[in-house]
Amino acid sequence: MARIIVVTSGKGGVGKTTTSAAIAMGLAKKGHKTAVIDFDVGLRNLDLIMGCERRVVYDFVNVINGEATLNQALIKDKNCSMLYILPASQTRDKDALSQEGVGKVLDELKKDFKYIVCDSPAGIEKGAHLAMYFADDAFIVTNPEVSSVRDSDRMLGILSSKSRRAEQNEEPIKEYLLLSRYSPDRVRLGEMLSVDDVQEILSLHLLGVIPESKSVLNASNSGIPVILDEKSDAGQAYADIVGRYLGEDKPHRFIDEKKGLFGKLFGGK
């Protein structure tokens, strides 16, 4: 049975597209046929993060409008044959996506794919609404920062009341917390909300912590999902997250700071 995952946050710039690209690649690398869809109509960027921007011919809206078939629009990833990308349209027409159209495309994808990752746009407008509407699981990407935490909570409210599962009184969407751009050293200094703080406020199941990392910008610069940078901390964090999501028992990492010699001599605990 196919599962639809929405990657959402409410707030912009917290790492939704980075996360969508990384987890879609992670699931595909584990041998699951995966599609990742960009719902940010008008501001598509997933293609750039996935490094397939020059291979976009048809997009999501073309498929909905019947101007292209799904197979024509899906782009096969250059690094992994189990991964396909459905890019967003660059149209400025906000109503280009319809609930009926999105539902049809997802139903068609479900026949062929194991996981369908929906990269939500920021905000709570139509694109964000449609990205989460059909979801089975929600990955809430949150930064340890007040506005991001607040918006995540707002998004949780929307997931529990405005989704298909909520409207049809089905089992609710499974919600997972992904805490990104985390700096353990700033947490220790009392300058940043800790994992425990954020979990306590949002009462969400923690799927993983992604540390603030230079490798994320390097990955997006080169159009290669950061999870493929297996040496990097962020890449490993995403690999752990994919493993945990698939039911593997992986202890949490990147919550405590790496200690150098100086830290060992002068740091606490």
Binding site: V146, V149, R150, G190, E191, M192, L193, S194, D197, I201
Partner: peptide
């Protein structure tokens, strides 16, 4: 500042 943030949130 983190504990202030937590309290406000």
């Amino acid at each position: 500042s983190a504990s202030l943030a937590k309290e406000r949130l």
